[in-house]
């Protein structure tokens, strides 16, 4: 058993945990966390699986993963802004409008617009 095997197994476990998180999460931020975990697992596999060159990881996958990390943080930042906006508009942070009320906890029954509706509701102009 070598280090590579250990890290492949770890990546698989993390991927599975991410899948579990994605399936069970009601809150959008939890889904984002789960997706980020899965991405990390993929990145780990990308580095561990290709052959090492002179005892170091192949530079090409390293560059790919570095690119992937920056894309991941960009996407996450954008998704968080979208989540905050959606939360303002609908008052809860679940994706499905017809979500199981128990999952929304305290916001049950608050079906219409969110608690801090702004002046420029809708897509209209200022």
């Amino acid at each position: 058993m070598s280090g590579e095997v250990v890290f492949v197994l770890a990546a698989a476990a993390i991927f599975g945990l991410g899948v579990h998180g994605l399936l069970t999460a009601g809150h959008i931020m939890r889904k984002l966390l789960a997706l980020n975990l899965m991405l990390s697992a993929v990145f780990l596999l990308l580095i561990v699986v290709p052959a090492r060159i002179d005892g170091l990881p192949d530079p090409v996958p390293q560059a790919l993963v570095l690119t992937g990390i920056v894309i991941a943080v960009s996407t996450t930042a954008f998704a968080l802004a979208l989540m905050v906006r959606l939360f303002r508009r609908q008052g809860h942070a679940a994706i499905h409008p017809d979500v199981d009320p128990r999952m929304l906890g305290h916001v049950t029954g608050r079906t219409s617009a969110g608690p801090q509706e702004e002046h420029d509701r809708g897509s209209g102009s200022r």
Partner: peptide
């Protein structure tokens, strides 16, 4: 926006999810 979010949990328990996750991990 909503102070009660501090206690937000919003996860459900599902045996299906556990099974799917285990299966995916095994596949990977």
């Amino acid at each position: 926006i909503d102070p009660e979010q501090a206690q937000a949990q919003m996860t459900r328990h599902s045996h299906v999810a556990v099974a799917v996750a285990a299966l995916t991990a095994g596949l990977v």
